[in-house]
Design a protein around this nucleic acid. Structure first.
Length: 501
RNA sequence: GGGUCGUUAGCUCAGCUGGUAGAGCAACGGACUCUUAAUCCGAAGGUCGGGAGUUCGAUCCUCCCACGACCCA
């Protein structure tokens, strides 16, 4: 006993010390962490099934139930008590009294703490104020909680603690639980959407010998047995297109990708993306499919296409706008004429005035894109496809037949944020090899985000990639939109933070 | 990397040109058999994020550091 006390971590905190003492007593009297209790109902199921019944009906033919959960509220009134327990489905109230539960069991209950996990057996009734409640016949402490819960009314509000101790945030904040429930439903609905359309869900490597599929800096790791470095994937794109070569003509992957870049309200080092590829389709088809997908998700998950993001109202049933880069600039900055936006000297002058860096070798399209990124992107609140991206910033996209300086590519913007990026795939192996070479040159002259030359991918293209359309959608950002969350950290269960010390 | 703001009891928050800290919840003792964030009474709980400086004296002013939030690159 004294030995056990010495081994226990020293805790000066009074509350934890008191709870440890209660646990020590439990250990002396039997199994302190039993696992022989079985529940047969969830709280919300009971409310759905019996919540509307009259007390007379419930009392006449008593319904016996076993439920379990964490005690989150407790009201002791001498010879009788009320408590609320919470399980994965919701809450239910308990009524414990000397009459029914027995004096000693009630006395024991009085020493249970908020946060303790209880197993309860009893019958249902309706209180005078109309709440479905379990009249407890017996109850057990299944797991002793040694640490106090956050304040019961306000819950946990400290942002840092919400992220670091997400379990506490989830215990005490209904809104947080709702966000992650919605997240789960969105991902299920995406899966159903593509499965209904005959797509095959696949899993491709997360460890890449050559990082590819996006312009981004990768994380590097090492495989000991092979004695080689691997890169955590920045995108699954090149593997998915290898699969289209293989004959899997419609594939999708809900993938975790990793980018070794800054952290912000829109960026987490690891994030979830949806990528999908379909042979014998083009980027126009993708835009239509994307509109349908986002609309269907909203209806399935929220029950409406009328959403509000941080106070801005968006009706997703309106057709999504489709604008070229210069049309988008002019929409918000009509002072620029067509002639000016196609004049190198004018664009450079404007970029310099805005203190935006550019390279002397940048083509007209890239200069336009730089101006767009700085002045217009963040203003695209309503869903807008930006089309006709310059070839030199789209090394994996098919060139436009009429204008080879641009590609058959689009990005989708909603609430000023990039949500999706899709294009008709570049399936000409010789053009792809030349574009990789260009990327290698850019990398050599210091562009850390430029792509590597992927010889095996070229070899795959040489076997023949059918004409294909492919797209990536940022799932975290889509979830932010549909849950009205201001930060990507609010939709990721365990966002990355600096080490606490 | 730069700027702004924040860090006080387990949690939610107060704290007045600078005089070494308060409330509510939780927890502890007591009263209470239909409560709903139960109520009432009592007692307890603090290295004011860390460090240095100014001062007779610092939660408060200055500087550095840590962590976080937001904005910018």
């Amino acid at each position: 006993m004294s030995e056990q006390e010495q081994k226990a971590p020293q805790n000066t905190n009074q509350i934890i010390a008191e709870r440890r003492a209660k646990l020590a007593t439990l250990r002396e009297t039997g199994a302190a962490f039993p696992n022989d209790f079985r529940r047969n109902h969830l709280a919300s199921d009971l409310h759905k099934k019996y919540g509307d019944q009259s007390n007379d009906t419930l009392e006449k033919d008593p319904i016996s139930v076993e439920v379990a959960g964490r005690m989150i509220l407790k009201r002791v009134m001498g010879k009788a008590s009320f408590a609320t327990i919470q399980d994965m489905s919701g809450h239910i109230q308990l009524y414990i009294s000397n009459d029914i539960t027995g004096e000693s069991a009630h006395a024991a209950f009085k020493h249970f703490d908020l946060g303790d996990i209880l197993g309860v057996h009893g019958t249902l009734f309706i209180t005078k104020s109309g709440e479905l409640t379990i009249r407890v016949k017996s109850l057990r402490l299944l797991t002793k909680s040694l640490r106090p819960l956050p304040e019961k009314f306000h819950g946990l509000t400290d942002q840092e603690q919400k992220y670091r101790q997400r379990y506490l945030d989830l215990i005490s904040n209904e809104d947080t639980r709702k966000v992650f429930l919605t997240r789960s439903r969105i991902i299920q609905s995406i899966r159903a959407f593509f499965e209904e359309r005959g797509y095959l869900e696949v899993e491709t490597p997360m460890m890449h010998p050559i990082p590819g599929g996006a312009a981004a800096r990768p994380f590097i790791t090492h495989h000991n047995a092979l004695n080689m470095d691997f890169y955590l994937r920045i995108a699954p794109e090149l593997y998915l297109k290898r699969l289209v070569v293989s004959g899997m003509e419609k594939v999708f992957e809900i993938n975790r990708s990793f980018r070794n870049e800054g952290i912000s309200t829109r960026h987490n080092p690891e994030f979830t993306m949806l990528e999908f590829y379909e042979a014998y389709q083009d980027h126009i088809y993708l835009m239509n499919l994307t509109e349908t997908l986002i609309r269907e998700l909203a209806i399935k998950v929220l029950g409406t296409t009328e959403i509000s993001y941080q106070g801005y109202k968006i009706n997703l049933s309106n057709p999504f706008l489709r604008l070229s880069i210069t049309q988008a600039i002019q929409k918000f900055h009509p002072e620029h004429t067509d002639a000016q936006l196609n004049d190198r000297a004018y664009l450079i002058k404007k970029l310099e005035a805005l203190n935006i860096s550019y390279k002397p070798e940048d083509g007209i399209g890239k200069l336009q894109l730089s101006l767009f990124d700085e002045t217009t992107e963040h203003l695209l609140m309503d869903p807008t496809f930006i089309v006709d991206y310059p070839s030199d910033v789209s090394p994996l996209a098919r060139r436009n037949d009429k204008n080879p300086g641009v590609t058959d590519r689009f990005e989708l913007y909603i609430t000023g944020r990039e949500m999706a990026n899709g294009f008709s795939e570049l399936n000409d192996p010789e053009d792809q090899a030349a574009r990789f070479q260009e990327q290698v040159r850019a990398k050599e002259s210091g562009d850390k985000e430029a792509m590597h030359y992927d010889g095996d991918y070229i070899r795959a293209l040489e076997h023949g990639l059918p004409p294909t359309a492919g797209e990536g959608i940022g799932i975290d950002r889509l979830i932010m939109l549909l849950t009205d969350s201001p930060s990507i950290r609010d939709v990721i269960l365990f966002p990355h933070l600096r080490r606490e010390d």
